[in-house]
Write a protein that binds this DNA or RNA. Structure first.
Lengths: 138, 138
DNA sequence: AGATCGATGAGAACGCTTGTCAACTCGCCG
DNA sequence: CGGCGAGTTGACAAGCGTTCTCATCGATCT
């Protein structure tokens, strides 16, 4: 269903696969955890693949809309992005070093669905993030 | 342990109970859900209790540090505050009309604590919001 | 190759938040 | 009871992340 790479543009209609978009997508793929737009922008510069900051933002939004990346807000309010894997999951994030652990919780999924149904809500989605201090940082 | 009102300043050493702080604290108490600093600032103005924006921010930080309010980030990255009620709960929000239902989930609390512990994380907090379309809107 | 239209980049603009600093208040001591 | 000092305030500027603007560029189609 999802063949991870090379489907950056095909999703949205009037969208083109440009050098910049590929570059952003690649950098994104090279990380497991969340990165801010600015961080990605800097990294691209260091890699020689200079891409305008505005373009980085635009591309990330595009990818987010297409459901290819997860967007989160750090506790400082910065938007952070990460390529999302096919499976729906949540994150356990270290406040101090940013280390991220993916966690799954069928129980939680069922619980949210149940609660929503109980109140007559439909078309449900939810966000769940767990923050803490990882063993290495405490 | 927590006697809700009137302990805005006694917590922190060199801290005084001023008109402004009381005003912010009161406005905060008059809501059950999260409000942004700017919103609180505007509300104070309407109430006739004008308080400088910077002071609102400072007071909210103070209260947050003292553990009297919860701070969260809206999806737009705005910091939102809520008086830390005794009961921890989550929200079921209608995407269309904004209606909010407070929900509690002991199971979820236990689950997050468990997951975190399992990975050696400490000092845990979490955010969980459920979005959907309410009966009236669908 | 030429035309068309989305994409890009540089910089300005914007909104939220924090810092600065002089004026002010509150609580306290003499 | 008056004055002192430390905490507090408010207006404004600065900082930062993000979005917008617009002229230019480049990809796709004919």
């Amino acid at each position: 269903m999802t063949d991870s790479t090379a489907r950056v543009s095909p999703g949205v209609p009037g969208t083109r696969p440009t050098r910049q978009r590929r570059a952003v997508s690649e950098v994104l793929s090279s990380f497991e955890d969340f990165r801010s737009a600015q961080e990605i922008h800097t990294l691209l510069g260091q890699r020689g693949e200079s891409v305008g900051l505005a373009t980085v933002y635009r591309t990330l939004q595009l990818l987010a809309d297409a459901g290819e990346v997860d967007v989160l807000r750090s506790e400082e309010g910065e938007a952070i992005y990460r390529r999302c894997s096919a499976t729906h999951h949540h994150h356990l994030v270290c406040r101090s070093c940013g280390a991220t652990v993916e966690v799954e919780g069928p129980a939680v999924e069922r619980w949210t669905a149940g609660i929503a149904a109980e109140h007559g809500f439909s078309d449900i989605s939810h966000t769940l993030e767990i923050f803490g201090t990882c063993p290495a940082c405490s």
